[in-house]
């Protein structure tokens, strides 16, 4: 989605106050905080997420295994909690990587204009027109399947949104008075960009970025389904859902737990994104 957002020029404090009054965003932040706490401290209290106990496989939730065990008798709670670091890390790093790559390309296109603009934007179009899961599959297959390569593959399919977004921002802001003024005062192109354009584009980037954390986790899960995802025994949530889907009738808890973890994460980031959009969009009130 490349809707251009008008840029907020209010002070950060006002924005923060608005954000605090936004119940959706607050719910999102609380959820995220809980997930982060689980990711940080969960593994301290729990054992090895790879420890197998074939005698206790596919057992339902009990006092010993609060969320039951999976097909190899591994404790589902332990795996979901240790997966929090991996999956949240995956989502955030993919988002950051595609945000930075996309922004740089969009910035270059917007600032350099002419043939550079044309070339870079057509490249963006090519990536957008390419079916993303097939592209990610191909990249992951070419690089060899592991967690890092999954992240690279997902980042490579998600940067174009940012490139379009930033370029649109640059084009819109170039016409604004304060940039004109800065330029008239003798600032170079690059400095104008850094001093004015990027800070002003921060809001839409934040909004888009928060939505993308969730979709990165979901895309990685899709790759896992085809076998190009994180490799066993990595307790990445998407891989866990995909590995346990074969046992959905015998042990629904084993696939539901990581699926619900993904759901909560996507929910948290989307609510935060909605909240940020509400706050930073001066017209939407």
């Amino acid at each position: 989605m490349t809707t251009t957002l008008p840029v907020s020029r209010r002070s950060d404090n006002a924005a923060l106050r608005k954000l605090r009054r936004n119940s959706g965003a607050m719910l999102g932040f609380v959820l995220l905080l809980l997930l982060l706490l689980a990711a940080l401290f969960g593994p301290l209290f729990l054992g090895n997420p790879g420890a197998q106990d074939l005698a206790a496989r596919l057992s339902p939730p009990s006092a010993a295994h609060w969320l039951g065990t999976d097909q190899l008798g591994r404790d589902v709670l332990t795996r979901v909690l240790s997966g929090a670091r991996i999956s949240l890390g995956l989502g955030v790093s993919v988002m950051l990587a595609s945000l930075i790559t996309g922004s740089l390309i969009g910035l270059l296109a917007g600032l350099l204009s002419g043939w550079w603009d044309e070339g870079l934007m057509r490249l963006t179009d090519i990536f957008l027109a390419f079916p993303s899961l097939i592209l990610a599959m191909a990249i992951s297959a070419a690089l060899g399947p592991n967690l890092t390569n999954v992240m690279i593959a997902v980042a490579l399919v998600s940067w174009p949104t940012y490139a379009r977004l930033i370029r649109a921002q640059v084009l819109a802001l170039r016409e604004r008075e304060f940039v004109e003024a800065a330029r008239a005062l003798g600032s170079s192109q690059g400095r104008v960009a850094l001093r004015h354009l990027l800070p002003n584009s921060l809001a839409p980037l934040l909004v888009q970025g928060s939505f993308d954390v969730g979709s990165a986790i979901l895309t990685a899960a899709g790759l896992g389904f085809i076998g190009f995802g994180a490799q066993p025994p990595t307790p990445e949530w998407g891989a866990m859902v995909s590995e346990t889907r074969n046992y959905i009738a015998q042990a629904p808890w084993a696939s539901s737990a990581p699926a619900v973890a993904i759901l909560l994460t996507v929910l948290a980031f989307n609510l935060i994104g909605d909240g940020l959009r509400d706050v930073f969009d001066p017209r939407g009130r």
Binding site: G24, G214, L218, A221, G222, G224, F225, G238, V241, S242, R245, I248, S255, A259, V260, I262, L263, V266, L267, N270, L271, D274
Partner: peptide
Amino acid sequence: RIFALLGGATPVYW
């Protein structure tokens, strides 16, 4: 909004 999100927030194959 939460209701709308529920369907799309889990792996689609699951």
